[in-house]
């Protein structure tokens, strides 16, 4: 979500700022002038080429019966064989369903929380208190998933603090970390704990751009607190909300890999297998590379289509979208 607001800024800058240097000069002259800049960019371009674009091409093994010994050139091409196997596999559909369920659940129970918190925090008058709360709320964003899961285990796990307290009260055993029935709730609360505070940043920034005179004028016209919220604040936040919603929908097949790989063993694959962990376990650990790559490619292509469709939809609704049409 952060990435795209920056991208659009960069786009805007680029559009306004170009052509301050000689545009008509021929290539050789421009090269003579600009070669140091090209040299500076080259390490990044090489690294992205080698570790991003080149392996992206490696996805062709999804259409092969890939063997590590034969390599891409020596392996047999089997067309859509891996995909046929994939779509006939109940575990794949279960992983897809789990992924979509988690996305849907988080859309309802995670997405609104940063908005709500930002509104609440924005109404705190004392700058010092506000900065303090922001500082604390952003912090878990910088923790690793291993750490977050460890902390949750210590609080809500079988030998965690809550279980400990319940035990001394004479209640039975309690363990939220291994209970498949509450797994959806667990992963959502972990995501909220880690990133809801951080999510406020965008909304706080948007809130600070709303002209205070609007509120004063509305108050003078007799609008109370709630009507001002409804008629000024929420319309002011709408572009940001739409943007983040698009990005979340575009990312519907990504629910966070580390969080699930860490907890898969404890609650079982039935509820915790998502597309990314499916690729890892069914493809990589088993050594069934072509099959795993097919699952990964499916996810990548559908994800790309989703984000393009969501963006188009936003344009149709008259919103800015993730990137502008140019």
């Amino acid at each position: 979500m952060r990435r795209c607001s920056v991208t659009t800024v960069a786009e805007a800058r680029r559009r306004t700022g170009r052509s301050s240097r000689g545009g008509g000069a021929n290539w050789r002259q421009r090269f003579r002038k600009d070669w140091p800049l090209l040299l500076m960019v080259s390490p990044v371009v090489v690294l992205l080429g080698v570790f991003h674009y080149f392996p992206t091409l490696g996805n062709v093994i999804a259409f092969q019966d890939y063997s590590p010994y034969a390599g891409i050139r020596g392996s047999e091409w089997i067309g859509f064989g891996n995909f046929a196997r994939l779509f006939a596999e109940p575990e794949f559909w279960s992983a897809l369903m789990n992924t979509l369920t988690i996305t849907g659940f988080q859309l309802v129970f995670f997405f609104p929380i940063p908005i709500f918190l930002a509104l609440l925090l924005n109404s705190v008058l004392s700058v010092r208190v506000r900065t303090m709360i922001q500082g604390v709320a952003y912090l878990p964003h910088f923790f690793s998933w291993v750490l977050v899961v460890s902390l949750f285990q210590q609080m809500l796990g079988g030998s965690g603090l809550l279980a400990q307290a319940l035990r001394t009260q004479g209640h039975g055993a309690f363990d939220m970390m291994t209970n498949p029935d509450t797994f959806l709730l667990l992963v959502t609360s972990q995501a909220v704990w880690k990133d809801a505070g951080w999510g406020m940043i965008v909304f706080l920034a948007a809130l600070s751009t709303i002209n205070p005179a609007l509120y004063e004028a509305a108050a003078a016209d007799g609008a109370n607190r709630w009507r001002r919220l409804w008629h000024i604040t929420l319309p002011g936040l709408r572009p940001v909300i739409v943007l983040l919603l698009i990005l979340r929908l575009g990312d519907a097949l990504t629910v966070g890999f580390e969080q699930f790989i860490l907890q898969r063993a404890a609650v079982g694959a039935e509820v915790s297998e998502v597309l990314d962990t499916f690729v890892y376990y069914q493809g990589l650990l088993v050594g069934d590379f072509g099959y795993g790559a097919a699952a990964g490619l499916f996810k990548g292509v559908v994800g790309l289509v989703l984000i393009l469709v969501a963006n188009r939809f936003a344009h149709m609704m008259g919103e800015q979208g993730v990137y502008s049409k140019s």
Binding site: R3, C4, T7, A10, R14, G17, R18, S19, S20, R21, G22, G23, W27, R30, F31, K33, D34, L37, L38, V41, V44, V45, L48, F51, H52, Y53, F54, P55, T56, L57, G58, N59, I61, P68, D276, V279, Y280, G283, L284, F289, G292, A293, G296, L297, K299, G300, G303, L304, I307
Partner: peptide, 28 residues
């Protein structure tokens, strides 16, 4: 602004937002 090839090179960077190479090809 306006330097040689800066637009296509920027595009190369920005495009990495849209898709990743995937776990298995990266591993291989």
């Amino acid at each position: 602004p306006g330097s040689l090839l800066h637009r296509p090179l920027l595009f190369v960077v920005l495009l990495t937002f849209l898709f990743g190479p995937g776990i298995i090809p990266s591993y291989l």
